[in-house]
């Protein structure tokens, strides 16, 4: 079943057409990778789907409902989670508190001005951390984590809202190769286990071809290819874009 359908997305900055008529869909439990050279429009596409940007034209439908142009906080409520290319965690809190805040946000508790916040959703937070194998670091300051741990914490925070769709912008950037594979394998397990749709961008082709169920290739704002790993590997236009050529 289709979780997300984007159709005819357009976005221009000044005179530059960053995304020009991109359409795609993701099914439940599907890992969809979006690749392309620098400046292909991947991050813009992400921001259009994630609500950070509003498309000039086109529609984004989540489970059949129009979510075009809704702000990220509204999408979060509808079950869209997201991780960022530049890691952003709440540095003044512990690892567990990061997840607790996300849980409180998900349960719409954040206007509560009374009662200690670090007492709420403790067990749920630890359980989520256990899913990403971070439970032993629950009481450490998030600001001092190693890079790979930060990425896993971000994932736990995104999962706290129980998303139906997870957007991951360069989830493994800056990680060691072994860590990358481990993290994406984890994501894949979660996606398949929970029926979670995952859209991710990635530079590392080994990761992409290793975990993605399906791959989209963007170039200069256009979708130039779509298919499974084998099809993409064989696509002439993709080879031309990546390897250069006629």
């Amino acid at each position: 079943m289709t979780a997300l359908r984007a159709s005819g997305l357009h976005k221009a900055f000044g005179g530059v057409q960053a995304v020009a008529g991109v359409s795609f869909a993701i099914g439940r439990g599907e890992m969809l990778a979006m690749i392309g050279p620098n400046g292909a429009g991947k991050t813009t596409c992400f921001d259009l789907v994630g609500g950070q940007l509003r498309p000039d034209a086109g529609r984004v439908m989540l489970d059949g409902q129009d979510i075009t142009g809704q702000p990220p906080r509204a999408l979060a409520r509808r079950g869209v989670g997201r991780t960022f290319q530049i890691t952003a965690v709440f540095a003044s809190m512990t690892v567990r508190e990061n997840v607790q805040v996300a849980l409180q946000a998900h349960h719409r508790r954040f206007w509560r001005c009374w009662g200690a916040a670090d007492a709420g959703f403790r067990d749920e937070a630890v359980a989520l951390l256990a899913q990403v194998d971070m439970q032993t670091q629950a009481d450490r300051a998030a600001g001092v984590l190693a890079y790979g741990d930060l990425k896993r914490l971000e994932l736990a925070v995104a999962l706290a809202a129980g998303p139906r769709l997870l957007l991951m912008d360069e989830p493994t950037a800056g990680m060691a190769p072994a860590e990358r594979t481990a993290l994406m394998a984890l994501v894949r397990r979660l996606a398949h286990g929970r029926g979670l749709a995952v859209l991710f961008t990635e530079h590392d082709m080994d990761v992409v071809f290793g975990v993605a169920d399906r791959i989209l290739v963007l170039n200069r704002g256009h979708l130039i290819a779509e298919g499974d790993a084998a099809a993409i590997r064989a696509d002439a236009r993709v080879r031309a874009v990546y390897l250069g050529g006629p």
Binding site: F84, A105, A158
Partner: peptide
């Protein structure tokens, strides 16, 4: 700490 992240949750 992280406005974009806060908004995303």
């Amino acid at each position: 700490d992280a406005p974009a992240r806060a908004e995303a949750i």
